[in-house]
């Protein structure tokens, strides 16, 4: 079990000593039980930090935001940023470092192990609470305990956990400066890629109907892209509206900007967007599942990313976020890479 006070003490000490300039963690939000991202700069605020089953956000996103902000101010980072990171979050940080987005010494990773559980899926939880809102949620062994107006409700974590956590193979931040909680790597709560396998078991026509339905519903609000730490490009290739014009942009570039996708949120454009995003995340997505959680219309985006993740794993033995030094999936070529898909 992770003692929350340890995280708070660490944050306070490091901030007080000036070892980190900020600690990015979770604090209690303003709606019910939900945690929200917290940016602690004052040691006195360290006691705001929380660690509970609603800490789903992948905070590495804010490392990206910080870097962009500093670049905008033309400032050097100075002291590192402390960040509370789960297994999947830490892997995202590794991918970002692999892509030279920032250096290892710019980040102080305060790892938290998900141990035997993970984070809650609100959609799974709702039916268990008889229509009441939970005002608090805590870890307790393999259970989650929720507080509602009806009193405490204890539920086995696996019943209300997010799919990505059930399927998670490494619920532990391997890359860390400091880590709390036990390494329960190898726990088998659900078969990896279980949701993907269920989906793939369907007939071709049914699969197409499934996706047609979801692609029709996507409103292209780009929440999935905004919440994704890997979608850090200044200009997204699927965008035709946010074309950055800098002092280096030539007149010709302005004139010749390419519209790979039209702005309308129609099926064909949505397919192009979501497929392009899946391709661009191949070998980079660490399955933090934030895109799917953030989606307001419940498009099962994880299925797409999972498919790419499994291809990378099975065909190329590649695990995103496994090591900082190694080459990325699409940039490396090995003699024994499979070539049987080329006909």
């Amino acid at each position: 079990m992770i003692n929350l006070q340890d995280i708070r003490d660490t944050a306070r000490d490091m901030l007080a000593k000036g070892e980190v300039r900020t600690v990015i963690g979770y604090r209690r939000g303003t709606r019910g039980m939900l945690a929200e991202p917290a940016f602690i700069t004052d040691p006195a605020q360290a006691d705001d930090l929380v660690w509970n089953p609603t800490c789903f956000h992948n905070l590495s996103l804010y490392l990206v935001e910080d870097r962009k902000f500093l670049a905008h101010l033309r400032q050097n980072p100075g002291a590192p940023i402390g960040i509370v990171a789960k297994g999947c979050d830490a892997r995202s940080i590794v991918v970002l470092m692999q892509e030279h987005y920032f250096k290892r010494e710019d980040v102080y990773i305060i790892g938290v192990s998900c141990e035997g559980t993970g984070v809650v899926d609100e959609r799974k939880l709702a039916p268990h609470l008889n229509g009441f809102q939970a005002s608090d949620a805590v870890f307790d062994g393999d259970d989650f305990v929720f507080t509602t107006a009806q009193g405490e409700k204890r539920l086995p974590a696996r019943e209300v956990m997010a799919d990505r956590c059930l399927e998670c193979r490494i619920p532990f931040p391997k890359e860390h400066n400091l880590v709390f909680g036990e390494d329960k790597t190898g726990r088998q709560l659900a078969e990896p890629f279980a949701a993907l396998k269920r989906f793939e078991a369907q007939e071709g026509g049914d699969r197409w109907n499934f996706w047609s339905h979801h692609f029709d519903r996507c409103i292209r609000c780009f929440a999935c892209r905004s919440v994704c730490p890997m979608c850090y490009c200044d200009e997204c290739v699927v965008d035709s509206i946010t074309f950055p014009v800098t002092s280096e942009t030539s007149a010709e570039e302005k004139a010749n900007r390419i519209r790979w996708i039209e702005r309308s949120a129609t099926r064909s454009e949505n397919i192009t967007y979501l497929m392009t995003r899946a391709m661009h995340l191949a070998g980079r997505c660490t399955d933090c599942g934030e895109c799917e959680r953030a989606c307001p219309v419940n498009v099962p985006i994880r299925l797409l990313n999972n498919k790419m993740e499994r291809e990378a794993r099975e065909k190329f033995g590649f695990e995103p976020g496994a090591s900082i030094g190694g080459p990325s999936l699409v940039a490396s070529f090995l003699d024994n890479d499979p070539g049987d898909f080329i006909r």
Partner: peptide, 15 residues
Amino acid sequence: VRRSHCTGCGMCVDA
């Protein structure tokens, strides 16, 4: 290289 678009991820260096 279009410098304005390059994020310096280094994938091209490896590739």
